[in-house]
């Protein structure tokens, strides 16, 4: 009997012999016929990773990527048939991959690409009418709660992450400068776009997402916070799906 456990183990480990009990139809050992399945599994998973992490692939080259992906897929095969989620552990894996230790920001780029993919598949939500914001007096605005679209993602980074990503993916983009950058992903319709967040923007948005009212979120964003730039970014990207005014008695 050829168990699925034995079949599966040898699939991901080419050093293992072909499981017994498999033949070519004439009773001879299956031999390289089994390798068709090995190849199908490895190629399909590698291609799924290449599709999901194009910037990582560009940064290290297709050959290196194929090698790294091959090691990753053997240590972490998918845990779900939804390939749209495959590679959630790839950034952490890259961070610990010694041979690529000299490209310290590689895992950060992978984190951004994962967030782009989550955004692509996130639920749709109708955008709130921005006129509501203008209709509020200052007190009402400070007390307002805002709900952000499910497709909004914030990635904070100790690297110039937005510049590195843009430089990698967009021909002619300027070279990254040495600084830290926070990125927000906005999906105005169907295509997620990474944007550079102004100073304090990430703290502001994180506070809003955690349910803080507008005023508290502004406080959380610190002194250098550029409210105008952050707000116009959110509005242009259709990021705000609800503005609720809960007046509490003093």
């Amino acid at each position: 009997m050829t168990s699925q456990a034995a079949f599966r183990t040898a699939l991901l480990d080419a050093a293992q012999p072909v499981p017994p009990g498999l033949t070519d139809g004439k009773g001879r050992p299956a031999g390289r016929r089994y390798a068709v399945y090995r190849n199908n599994v490895a190629v399909s998973l590698r291609e799924a990773l290449a599709t999901g992490f194009p910037a990582v692939e560009k940064l290290i080259g297709a050959e290196n990527f194929a090698h790294v992906a091959g090691v990753f897929l053997r240590s972490a095969p998918p845990v779900s048939p939804l390939m749209m989620h495959y590679g959630a552990g790839f950034p952490e894996f890259l961070a610990g991959f010694k041979a690529l230790g000299h490209i310290q920001y590689l895992a950060e780029v992978a984190r951004l690409e994962l967030a782009l993919r989550r955004s692509y598949h996130a639920a749709d939500a109708p955008v709130a009418d921005p006129a509501i914001l203008q209709s509020l007096d200052e007190e009402a605005l400070m007390a307002a709660h805002m709900t952000l679209a499910p497709a909004v993602e914030v990635v904070r980074s100790p690297w110039p992450l937005w510049s590195i990503y843009t430089f990698t993916m967009t021909p002619g983009a300027p070279k990254p400068e040495a600084r830290t950058e926070d990125v927000i992903i906005l999906r105005a319709e169907f295509d997620p776009e990474p944007h550079l967040l102004p100073a304090g923007g990430a703290a502001f948005i994180t506070a809003l997402s955690n349910g803080a009212p507008f005023g508290e979120a502004v406080d959380a964003a610190g002194d250098a916070f550029d409210l105008g730039a952050t707000l116009s970014l959110l509005l242009q990207g259709g990021a705000i799906t609800d503005i609720s005014i809960q007046r509490t008695d003093p």
């Binding site: 009997m1 050829t2 699925q4 456990a5 079949f7 599966r8 699939l11 009990g21 399945y37 199908n40 599994v41 399909s44 998973l45 799924a48 095969p77 998918p78 845990v79 779900s80 048939p81 390939m83």
Partner: peptide, 17 residues
């Protein structure tokens, strides 16, 4: 066919006896 074993999805249609 089968494609999942031990919670691992192998992304291929694997054969059965």
């Amino acid at each position: 066919a089968w494609s999942t074993h031990d919670a691992h999805f192998l992304n291929d249609l694997l054969p059965l006896p």
